[in-house]
Design a binder for these strands. Sequence first.
DNA 1: GGTGGGTGTAACAGAAACTGTTGCAACAAC
DNA 2: GTTGTTGCAACAGTTTCTGTTACACCCACC
Lengths: 142, 142
Amino acid sequence: MAANSRLTIATHALAWLALARRRGQEVLTSEQVAASVNTNPVIIRRSLGDLRRAGLVEVRHGAGAGWSLAREPEGITLLEVYDAVDAQPPFGLHRTEPNLECPVGHGIRPALSGVYGRVEQAMRRELAETSIADVLRETLVN
Amino acid sequence: MAANSRLTIATHALAWLALARRRGQEVLTSEQVAASVNTNPVIIRRSLGDLRRAGLVEVRHGAGAGWSLAREPEGITLLEVYDAVDAQPPFGLHRTEPNLECPVGHGIRPALSGVYGRVEQAMRRELAETSIADVLRETLVN
DNA sequence: GGTGGGTGTAACAGAAACTGTTGCAACAAC
DNA sequence: GTTGTTGCAACAGTTTCTGTTACACCCACC
């Protein structure tokens, strides 16, 4: 599968909004964000639409419209962004149901669900450690 | 993308090999494994081929051929299986290069690589905590 | 109250990845 | 040799994501 870049696009957009705000430009259009990410404005609207539904950004319509952060960048963690864009989980179970008459086929799905759940929890703990402000700081030193 | 089920298929095959061995049947054919996973034998050969290259299973050719574990199931961790099947990493960077003239576009890829690396390390630590024997034990209580 | 710049969303094309399938060469026990 | 099995290439089908076009809707501003 194509590597999932949704979290990357959304984080990029948020970091750019945070930097623009620090520079005094509160509102950016999807076209301005798209110019930094180097993609189509519709991709940005889809991504920022997810973030708006999660309460991370706000949108203004009409003339002079555009997007702005709904919260301080220090308070937005990558875990919230991850949940907002609902990227696919790292591992999937069997696509077709295994043979339930085999003892392994019968019990392996709940067993793996437990392992995969712990893995995802570890991932989430790590994502919660980093904020948009952290990403922006790291970005600007490069 | 379709959820990645490679780790699931490989782990299922290993658990089944471990159980069969405990029952006195050292060697299984790809068709016997496929019957438990409920898929095509070629899928199993591809998966077990990855595990063979990683030294986790052994194969015998000719008549009476088939697959067997190369190590004790207690000593095979899901991290080794994960590395053997090289599933895709959970997050991808931008598909097209961002605008390098924008300060965010310029520095965000190394910044995100750092975060994503820490997330993957957390995932790997968790995968290393579980062995095939653990999975089999959990499987048989369900 | 128009007007114009921008968002919201549907529809569709293209690319990429994975699964599943068929077919056949290679191989080794018997 | 015969037979059962792996190794692998080639291809179709499905799914998912990205990218693109098109158009309705919205609202600050004149």
